[in-house]
């Protein structure tokens, strides 16, 4: 039998730290693209162990697990301890679609007092705390790439983007971060 395959993240070895800003690729996580009608939410919430948020631009987090509202019937579920999310949902008979996208996305943490400013280099949304408070999450754009942006702290954001866009997203973040 062949050796077990090694995991190589798209941003292997990338990181940047400057005055007031740090860009850190997040370690592998498991992710689920969850689609479901309203009637299925309680069953799915129970299976996942957190309440799926039903308000636009919000997220629910519990320990290592979080669910981000992306659309009226769409959530991005993330588990930083790589729990098998698809398996959790497999037992749910209520109508839904659960698709494993653990490897489709990669995450970059943008932290520091300049986080908002650096994100402003490519994200056209108003990211001020009143409009994009801690816990807010939204699919949006960063430069010419689509991202999911989640504010995890006053001065901390998590960017989720597709694997092959991560080099572009990281490079643009770094370019903006270097303009102190």
């Amino acid at each position: 039998m062949a050796e077990i395959a090694r995991r190589m993240s798209a941003l292997e070895g990338r990181a940047y730290e400057g005055p007031g800003i740090a860009l850190t690729p997040d370690p592998p996580a498991s992710r689920l693209s969850l689609r479901a009608p309203e009637a299925s939410l309680s069953a799915l919430s129970k299976a996942l162990g957190l309440t799926l948020p039903d308000k636009p631009k919000t997220a629910a987090a519990d320990g290592s697990r979080a669910a981000l509202w992306l659309g009226p019937d769409e959530w991005l579920v993330i588990d930083e301890e790589c729990a098998d999310l698809a398996a959790l949902c497999a037992s749910v008979s209520a109508l839904h679609s659960a698709v494993d996208i653990s490897h489709r996305n990669t995450a970059i943490l943008v932290t520091g007092e300049r986080a908002e400013d650096v994100l402003g280099a490519g994200c056209p949304q108003d990211l001020s705390p009143t409009r994009f408070p801690v816990g807010a999450a939204s699919r949006t754009v960063f430069g010419k790439a689509e991202i999911v942006l989640w504010r995890i702290g006053e001065e901390a954001f998590r960017i989720e983007c597709w694997r092959s866009f991560s080099d572009y997203v990281f490079s643009l973040l770094e370019k903006a971060a270097r303009e102190a």
Partner: peptide, 15 residues
Amino acid sequence: GHGRGALFEPTRRTP
């Protein structure tokens, strides 16, 4: 703005 050279548009590479 930033959109020149390598950042003109995303260059996508496979694993």
